[in-house]
């Protein structure tokens, strides 16, 4: 197990560097001169342009800029925003609570919901047909559009939930009232994401249950005289849930990157919107910081998923 872990970690270090190099190149490949953005001028005189390039450290060749970036990175510094001059770590940090609250709650609910639906409908033909149909419809629905529809139904018409935002702007709640207020605001964006993500889990779980039920060991169990229900609950289910667990683990890796579309529709103060703003403003250090955080969290999620997998599934443990 330890060797297995070390090997995984070993491949991660080069992967991490590769991701950083590619992100850095991609960001700088985006068309447009960032100093035009920073200065707000369409055309700059060569002298003014040069002065700005020097000011932002963009006059150096790209590899030099990259090395400089790595140097500050290894001192634990993600740098400062080119526009606001604020530390990048702070700008990302202040967005993380809202992001994690939204993505973790929705992923978890979608994971549980998708599996529950798959299990409940697995052995009932008509239910299975209905769930598949609804799943297709939800799966192909644009997040943005679904969000607005939910706002119109649940906020405007029924008045059950607030339209958007993280808290009630007219009040300054603290303690429990604050927590409840946040949950109240979380409901609709979370529901939107659950509805969009749930069909994915459902379909994976459904396919996997179907497959497992065809396997030889199930036939053997059936031949031994166990009831269908017992076989399903005790043996088929455990095996069938493994693939959707993988999916869930990977989705946690992207939890930090937020959900830009839903964040925009619900004015949710998450990392997704910060990313989009930074792309449009060509705020390189903020973007690099976000990519770094995402890269690390995705790799961590893969590692943790592998470990959990090994715990649940003895086959993997023995192989390694």
């Amino acid at each position: 197990m330890l060797r297995y872990l070390l090997r995984q970690l070993g491949t991660m270090i080069p992967t991490f560097f590769l991701v950083m190099v590619i992100s850095f190149m991609l960001i700088h490949l985006a068309p447009g001169d960032p100093v035009n953005r920073y200065s707000g001028q369409i055309s700059l005189s060569p002298e003014a342009r040069q002065a700005l390039l020097v000011k932002y450290g963009l006059d150096q060749p790209l590899p030099v800029q990259f090395v400089t970036y790595l140097e500050t990175l290894f001192q634990g510094d993600l740098g400062k925003s080119m526009l606001s001059g604020r530390p990048v770590i702070e700008m990302i940090g202040e967005r993380l609570p809202a992001t994690l609250l939204l993505t973790l709650s929705s992923s978890t609910l979608a994971f549980i919901g998708g599996n529950v639906v798959a299990v409940l409908t697995a052995r009932r033909r008509w239910l299975d047909f209905g769930a598949s149909l609804i799943g297709y419809v939800l799966f192909s629905m644009p997040t943005f559009w679904l969000g607005i529809i939910l706002i119109i139904i649940f906020a405007t018409q029924l008045d059950w939930f607030p339209t958007s935002g993280f808290t009630n702007a007219r009040e300054s709640y603290t303690g429990l009232a604050y927590a409840l207020d946040v949950l109240h605001h979380l409901a609709l964006p979370c529901l939107t994401l659950v509805l969009v993500e749930l069909p994915g889990y459902y379909r994976v779980a459904r396919a996997s249950i179907g497959e497992t039920r065809q396997e030889d060991f199930i036939t053997t169990l059936r031949a031994s005289g166990l009831s269908q229900g017992t076989i399903f609950r005790r043996y088929a289910l455990k095996n069938a849930l493994l693939p959707s667990l993988t999916l869930f683990g990977l989705s946690l890796g992207y939890a930090l990157s937020g959900a830009a579309l839903v964040e925009i529709v619900f004015a949710w103060p998450g990392v997704g919107r910060l990313t989009l703003d930074s792309v449009l403003k060509r705020d390189y250090p903020v973007l690099m910081g976000i990519y770094l955080v995402i890269a690390i969290s995705v790799m961590a999620a893969i590692l943790i998923t592998d470990i959990v997998y090994a715990f649940i599934d003895p086959r993997i443990r023995y192989q390694s």
């Binding site: 953005r37 707000g40 644009p142 997040t143 943005f144 579309l261 925009i264 449009l280």
Partner: peptide, 25 residues
């Protein structure tokens, strides 16, 4: 399918920016 919608979203963001036009613009 989603892409069209995305464009719509980005628009509303971009639209709200002054974006690279002159400071007087």
């Amino acid at each position: 399918m989603d892409d069209q919608k995305k464009v719509g979203v980005f628009e509303s963001l971009v639209r709200s920016e002054r974006n690279g036009i002159s400071r007087r613009e």
